[in-house]
């Protein structure tokens, strides 16, 4: 009897918790930062409708902004050396997201027991729990109004590097974005500068390992992804969103 009531309660509770969404669309870009894979294929299916789509993303590339019906989506990623375990993310209306797929294509894909325990007990913030296996991380990209400062962050998905520090050189000097260990994110740096030169160095070093110029529209939200390294080169992939226009840089 208790079990029956419990199941009935759960059945009533879940739709209420995960209830119907607003009318807006969610906006997603998927970024391929997998080292050693010339291309990845991402399959994503809405769990409520079963509707699926496949994406082929070249190395260090990112998709156009996908306008998605709000739902929980189930993803699987096929890369040069295998397919990841499926994983899910919620896509809510009127939110902008970036989904980074990162890791080393040749690393063992199977999750260890310790990695599973660490993930269960550690929660969403525990990254890289199983060496450099191909993994994923969602970030929010929330551009502000055009008269607000631009926001910059740096994500370190460069396999095998020490922590990386990023800065922005402007005419008035260098401003630190922050330091991030592998699979970590630093920043944000909020700035009213219209442009600058981004440089990335190993933490505590003056050696610039990657750099790129960057335009910074007012209110824009920019994520600088550091990738690569196994071939000896750190590369920067830029995802920038502005309030009324969101397109790859």
């Amino acid at each position: 009897m208790i079990r029956r009531f419990g199941l009935a309660g759960l059945a009533l509770c879940l739709p209420a918790l995960m209830g119907a969404s607003g009318s807006g669309m969610g906006h997603l870009r998927v970024i391929n930062l997998v080292d050693g894979a010339p291309q990845i294929s991402v399959e994503m299916c809405a769990e409520n409708s079963g509707e699926c789509r496949s994406l082929d993303i070249p190395a260090d590339g990112l998709t156009e902004t996908l306008d998605l019906a709000p739902a929980v989506y189930r993803f699987s990623v096929t890369h040069a050396d295998g397919t990841t375990e499926p994983f899910s993310y919620g896509i809510a209306p009127d939110h902008e997201y970036g989904l980074a797929i990162y890791g080393l294509s040749s690393a063992k894909d199977k999750s260890t027991l310790f990695a599973r325990a660490k993930r269960f007990l550690g929660g969403l913030e525990v990254r890289a729990v199983n060496g450099f296996r191909v993994s994923h991380r969602m970030v929010t990209m929330a551009p502000g109004k055009a008269d607000e400062p631009a926001s910059l962050r740096m994500a370190n998905f460069s396999v095998g590097t020490v922590a990386l520090q990023a800065g922005m050189e402007t005419g008035e000097g260098t401003r630190a974005i922050g330091t991030a260990a592998y699979a970590g994110i630093s920043g944000p740096l909020r700035t009213t500068d219209a442009s600058g030169a981004i440089d990335v160095k190993p933490d505590g070093s003056d050696l610039v390992v990657a750099e790129t110029p960057l335009e910074l529209p007012g209110g824009s939200s920019t994520m600088i992804y550091a990738s690569g390294m196994t071939d000896g080169e750190v590369r920067l992939v830029i995802d920038q969103r502005v309030a009324d226009k969101a397109s790859p840089n």
């Binding site: 739709p15 918790l17 119907a20 993310y89 919620g90 896509i91 809510a92 209306p93 969403l124």
Partner: peptide
């Protein structure tokens, strides 16, 4: 809007 509870994150089992 129930989806906000998992917006951008992986849904987890109740015992979490």
């Amino acid at each position: 809007d129930g989806l906000q509870l998992v917006s951008g994150i992986e849904p987890r089992a109740p015992w979490a």
